[in-house]
Design a protein around this nucleic acid. Sequence first.
RNA 1: GUGGGCGUAGCUCAGUUGGUUAGAGCACCUGGUUGUGGCCCAGGAGGCCGUGGGUUCAAUUCCCAUCGCUCACCCCA
Length: 418
Amino acid sequence: MEFRSIKGTYDILPNDADSWQRVETCVREFITRAGYSEIRTPAFEKTELFTRSVGEDSDVVSKEMYSWTDQGGTDITLKPEYTASVIRSYIQHNLGAKSPLTKLYYLDNLFRRERPQKGRYRQFRQYGIEAIGSPHPEQDAEVITIAYELLVELGIKDITLKLNSIGSSECRNEYRQALKDFLQPHLDKLSETSRKRFDSNPMRILDTKIDFEIVLLQDAPTITSFLTLDDANHFDEVQIYLEALDVPFTLDTTLVRGLDYYNRTTFEIISSKLGAQDALCGGGRYDKLAETLGGKQTPAVGFAAGLERILIAMDEVDTDQKIQADKIYLIGLGDAVRPTMLKILGEARKAGLIMEFDSLRRSIKSQMREANKIGASLAIIIGDKELKDKSVQIKDLKNGQQESIPIDSIISYIKSLN
RNA sequence: GUGGGCGUAGCUCAGUUGGUUAGAGCACCUGGUUGUGGCCCAGGAGGCCGUGGGUUCAAUUCCCAUCGCUCACCCCA
């Protein structure tokens, strides 16, 4: 085969498109009800938007971006995540001037060049929301609740909400030092990757999957004990409000997000139905991002959820409830009837009827089989005999009853059936 | 970038201790008398057995390479 879809990309065929549409519709309705409006930004942005916001040293920027220099010499990158792009647009159009609180959502394609595996693709779809303008913990709680309740609404079971606070940058510096002090004596026993992280990004060591290190880290200082009073209060309030909203969560002091712009609240929702890539969604607060991108100081909180992963998690759920519209199949016999047949088709569709016909000039038997296959409830048959006396046969495919009616009354006849 | 698993029909998979025309189920197409579906019956189409090389009288089968898919590491949604 000469051409196939590129590694990490895939076609959504008609069969799967049904479930995609159901999920997308559900997401849009749910989020719209919560008062969030859609924003769509271009598929690519200046590369620097991401290097600056996501972080030069992050995995996403350092090795996963689809970047190129265009013919005009501009460095361009296919969006690997949406938040930076949304904030760029927020600043560019001065949305903050229209309202002190801006609530946005998106549902779109993103691109990262990673090795594909279960729940991870190079072109993937996310939906996400951003609440821009409020520094207060009730906003964190609302955002988290939307993430959680939407998954529940989609029928996904066995999900766990993990919550943490990584504080502000000041206390993170202190914590980073404390963590290094703690690990220093054990440095020679750590894995190679952990030793590298010791210098570059010690907090990532908390993500380790090595048993020995997990045990060792049980006694390590936790970020929560380094939070400033304000940070700690904020975190406490988030928890109080989540309880008020009846959203169950578990605290996880090892939850360190890979994007640089987060501060204070971070969270993640995982599903046991997925493989190693078990995060259905993740997000948190990012109060400094707008400034980083040259805007005014603007607190914000949001999350992103992977739609492929949601679809995988939903697979266990029974989603096979096909909406069966009342289809009509138009059967023509012989060359002479064709103009009349197409006239019927055109008028029926203008009248809002759901009608299909056979363009293969097949036998009546084949056409009847086709009518049955597509689940039509009625078949209209027109041949030379009918053409002569300006009538058609209408057959009810459920009970097999068939009758002859005048060709002019097809639409009114069908409408009278409902 | 690194490792494991897997590549036979559109799909799910048999099979060959190396030996003539490579199979099944589902799906698809056409028929089962003159112009009527669903069940049933009959027939049909569709595979360079992923690709290239090697061993052999003989390779879909054994060996090597390569490509692809997949899962995992890393990181993330």
